[in-house]
Design a protein around this nucleic acid. Structure first.
Length: 919
DNA sequence: TTCCTGGAATTAGAG
DNA sequence: CACTCTAATTCCAGG
């Protein structure tokens, strides 16, 4: 019975998992691998941007302009359209004809039935597909492929930032595997389910997985990609902790390490295996496998090679892809699970013969340890709920994890009723679990979906996302960890998507679609492991803030899927106390105020000290500090959890449009809170945002109502929304749509607009890191999907929104960030800027800004605009600031900027006394 | 026995 | 290149 249930589950999982995110993100690459029928893939796709675009494109047909549209939701993807659309762009992306020399041409023509595809599973996929489709690969060197490193260089990818991109695109990797659906061919209508198997793989081992699972195939790919990772150096560590970490959580045993990351990979791997119904040959024993599995996989090998080739070809983006294995590597550790065949190939990653097999293998694995990462999958939790219940998502593809999604759409509103505590000690793979994330109250976070009246249960997805200034995306250094045990009341089960572990939790009508998240812990992956991954640009050091990201995919009668996402407040995951000593701003009573300043603002948070300083900072897009000033703190009223500060006057009293700045609390050298957003509005302009006077969160002492962390991109539109309500919509933190005009990433030169869009990422790192990038964009930015409704509307009300079930992903503004807006097809308003609160310039904009962190703006040169930094801002810059402005031109690297936002201030600020103090 | 913790010892890196 | 300090990881031990 379990099997069946599992299978069901698997399917279930797979379907959406794979399809969605990956599909969306996955780019062409994926397709290529998958050989999605219709699409001819330019290898160039490797470029993340491309990939992104690709997806986007698919859906986007509707929206010509936005290159980025992602089809995501709309079933109907226009494959064709896409393909056509896609190709061109793909080629363009970097502008580089890319790849010329080495190129891989894949022509997928036929639309294979998913099944067929699946059948092809594994490497075969490729091959088979290849058969069907024409694949031409010109690879520089075989070695190249294998050697991820080789690839990597080429691809240099920015990882994470890119990641998001990467991720998407990575996921793509995986994805395609995973989501067969993604493949264009699938009509949206088609129930992806089968395909979906990838994720589920583990479970599915069996029959369930069967055929459909084309995905599996694809998944494999994904797996491979992932595997690739594992293969990577992680080796440094003994084992792939990841597996353990991921999987069971139990494994924690110290001595053994598994690769954490691998974990992810492993997951995939593991997953794939399972999923792939086909038992592939792999069947290898790797049981636990997790990481290893993939490592070993031959498939990977193959895939990797391909990937590598692609990467090489592609500009950078690809890098993320599978190859990811850094040569530097460490040895891969294998878990050695007995079953596992761990071959460590010289290449590192490489894959063992088994490579692809994994999928298949997995079944066997299932038997293996649960804990293994795989196990997680496999063994369906004994939870009362049977996953099987969930229906497979029909939606062809789910949005990539790095896509920005709204928290509300039409009648639906996904909300975090109880936020997690601001601190959580994540555990290493070498440790045992450190328990589930808790709520401040001592309980656990609670998430609820409002507006869902159907009787069918849904699946709530949870993954660990970033909490930096950039767009929300899966956190490279943390993975959600499934907690099991008698203390856990919520059933859950984990799946891998891309390199991200996702915890799936049932949302049951009988529980009012409310879930208590007591089953989610956080696993910390070794920085060194992650940083070695190809394509990974993010730095782990001091990159310890995360958010719980919840997603739910609601299938609509029309065949479309509404995907909602909401992210929690940031959680500081620094081990032990160090983190806890840092000041943390959780709430602020005022989010915007006239440039004149002078108003008292109440900050709520932790670790405030009498000597705490509050510094307002304005950064240029490039990250340079344009203005810094220390605000006056009412030291007499300082409490550990509250602090009253006087809003300083803005440097320019004559701003014509809102200007977003940031401020942070500094307790001394290296003890600085994260940036908080604050918006100065023209003095003569009525403040659009009303301060919530309500009781909402008011700290009381000051009598100021606090806004909770606007910073993280969960802007709330106070003006529109009732203060009391948490802005569900906003919460999602989907960024406002940046105007398309938004500047492109500097580096991306000729890139087609689409590219730009795609490259929202533009994140600093991406640029710097990937030398290869022709375009900084190399990092493909995940598109942000906007729901028309969410932003401003009090969710439920607008019918329009409702109508707009189908989400069209339009690419977001080309803004440097490359936001993609997802538009609900139906929603008329969706696309209209008006509907978006975030439109720059508007008072409402703040939300946008909030969505974007200043740093983001910084990150991409262009980003500033994109960031929504209002034109005014720019203008202002141009104009001599009335106020004292300290402009520091620091050629900071974007990378650093992102990474070390915390640090930078110090660096940058030499001039500011306040800063100095902090320093 | 496993899961959680809390805390401390080590190791790694940045400056 | 040595040294200092902080962050990251790994270990231990106890509940």
């Amino acid at each position: 019975a379990e099997m069946s249930s599992q299978q069901e589950e698997q399917e279930f999982d797979f379907s959406y998992l794979f399809e969605d995110s990956q599909a969306a993100q996955n780019e062409p690459d994926r397709d290529a691998y998958n050989y999605t029928p219709n699409v001819s893939l330019p290898i160039g796709m490797g470029n993340p941007c491309l990939s992104t675009q690709y997806h986007t494109l698919q859906s986007s047909p509707v929206i010509p302009v936005s290159s980025c549209h992602q089809t995501g939701y709309s079933v109907q993807n226009d494959n064709h359209a896409v393909s056509s659309y896609y190709l061109p762009q793909a080629l363009r992306p970097n502008g580089a004809p890319a790849l010329e020399s080495p190129r891989i041409e894949i022509t997928a023509y036929s639309q294979y039935p998913e099944d067929e595809v699946e059948a092809s599973g594994r490497e075969d996929h490729i091959i088979k597909r290849g058969v069907n489709s024409i694949v031409t690969l010109t690879l520089p060197n075989v070695d190249g492929y294998r050697d991820p490193s080789c690839l990597s260089p080429a691809s240099s990818i920015s990882s994470r930032s890119c990641n998001s991109e990467a991720s998407s695109y990575e996921s793509g990797f995986y994805n395609y595997d995973n989501s067969p659906q993604n493949s264009p061919w699938q009509s949206p209508s088609v129930s992806p389910r089968g395909s979906s198997s990838l994720l589920s793989c583990p479970h599915a081992i069996g029959p369930a997985a069967s055929p459909h699972h084309s995905p599996s195939n694809s998944p494999q790919i994904g797996a491979m990609a992932e595997e690739g990772w594992p293969a990577q150096p992680r080796g440094s560590r003994p084992n792939s902790p990841s597996c353990s970490g991921v999987g069971g959580g139990n494994s924690g045993g110290m001595g053994k390490r598994k690769y954490s990351f691998s974990g992810s990979s492993y997951q995939q791997t593991s997953c794939s295996p399972n999923q792939s119904p086909t038992p592939s040959s792999h069947g290898s024993p790797r049981v636990s496998v997790t990481d290893e599995n993939w490592l070993t996989n031959t498939n990977q090998y193959t895939n990797l090679a391909i990937v590598a080739a692609i990467n090489a070809l592609t500009t950078d983006g690809m890098a993320d892809m599978a190859e990811g294995i850094p040569i530097k590597t460490r040895k891969t550790m294998l878990d050695l699970s007995p079953s596992m065949s761990l071959k460590v190939e010289p290449g590192g990653e490489d894959l063992g013969p088994e490579g692809e097999l994994r999928h298949e293998e997995y079944p066997s694995r299932l038997s293996l340890k649960k804990e293994n990462y795989c196990g997680g999958f496999l063994d369906v939790p004994q939870h009362p709920y049977s996953w099987s219940k969930p229906k497979p998502y029909l939606s062809p593809s789910l949005p990539a994890l790095d896509w920005q999604l709204p928290s509300c759409s039409g009648p639906y509103n996904l909300q975090i009723e109880v936020q997690p505590k601001s601190h959580h000690r994540a555990h290493y793979e070498t440790e045992g679990s450190r328990g589930a994330v808790k709520a401040l109250s001592g309980g656990h976070p609670v998430v609820q979906l409002y507006g869902y009246m159907e009787s069918e249960p849904l699946t709530l997805q949870l993954f660990i996302g970033t909490a930096d200034d950039r767009l929300l995306r899966p956190h490279a250094f943390y993975q959600v960890h499934r907690i099991t045990g008698k203390t856990v009341s919520t059933a859950s089960h984990e799946v891998m998507q891309s390199n991200t572990k996702i915890l799936e939790i049932p949302l049951l009508p009988e529980n009012n679609m409310r879930a208590i998240i007591d089953c989610a812990g956080i696993l910390k992956l070794r920085n060194s492991d992650i940083e070695l991954r190809k394509g990974e640009t993010d730095i782990g050091r001091k990159n310890t803030r995360v958010r719980l990201v919840f997603r739910v995919h609601i299938n609509q009668p029309n065949g479309r899927t509404v995907s909602l996402q909401v992210a929690s407040n940031p959680i500081e995951c620094v081990a032990q106390r160090s983190a806890q000593e840092l000041p943390l701003v959780e709430k602020q009573s005022v989010e915007s105020y006239p440039a004149t300043g002078g108003k008292m603002m109440l900050l709520g948070g932790l670790n405030f000290l009498p000597e705490s300083k509050v510094v307002f900072v304005e950064k240029a897009q490039d990250g340079h500090h344009l203005w810094e000033t220390e605000a006056k703190v009412d030291k007499d009223s300082v409490k550990t959890n509250t602090l009253v500060v006087e809003i300083p006057p803005y440097r320019n009293q004559r701003i014509s449009s809102p200007v977003q700045v940031n401020f942070y609390v500094c307790n001394g050298k290296r003890k600085r809170s994260q940036y908080q957003r604050f918006t100065y509005v023209p003095a003569n302009v009525p403040i659009i945002k009303t301060e919530p006077t309500d009781e909402y969160d008011s700290l009381g002492s000051v009598g100021l109502s606090m806004h909770s962390k606007p910073y993280y991109g969960q802007p709330r539109l106070t003006s529109i929304m009732p203060v009391a309500e948490p802005d569900p919509c906003l919460v999602g933190g989907y960024p406002p749509c940046p105007p398309r005009h938004a500047a492109m990433p500097p580096s991306s030169p000729s890139s087609s607009p689409t590219l730009h869009d795609l490259s929202p990422v533009a994140y600093n790192k991406c640029l710097p890191n990937s030398p290869t990038h022709a375009a900084p964009p190399g990092t493909i930015a995940p598109p942000i999907q906007e729901t028309p409704c969410c932003p401003s509307l009090p969710h439920p009300t607008s019918p329009d929104h409702n109508s707009s079930l189908a989400v069209l992903h339009s690419q977001g503004s080309p803004g440097s960030l490359g936001y993609h807006h997802s538009v609900y097809a139906n929603s008329s308003s969706s696309s209209s800027p008006v509907s978006h609160p975030s439109t720059p310039g508007g008072p409402a904009e703040t939300p946008f800004f909030q969505a974007y962190s200043p740093s983001q703006a910084e990150a991409s040169g262009s980003s500033a605009q994109a960031a929504g930094s209002p034109p005014s801002l720019l203008a202002e810059d141009a104009t001599p600031p009335s106020m004292d402005i300290t402009i520091k031109q620091e050629p900071q690297e974007l990378d650093q900027m992102y990474l070390d936002d915390a640090i930078k201030p110090y660096l940058n600020e030499a001039n500011n006394p306040a800063i100095h103090d902090c320093l």
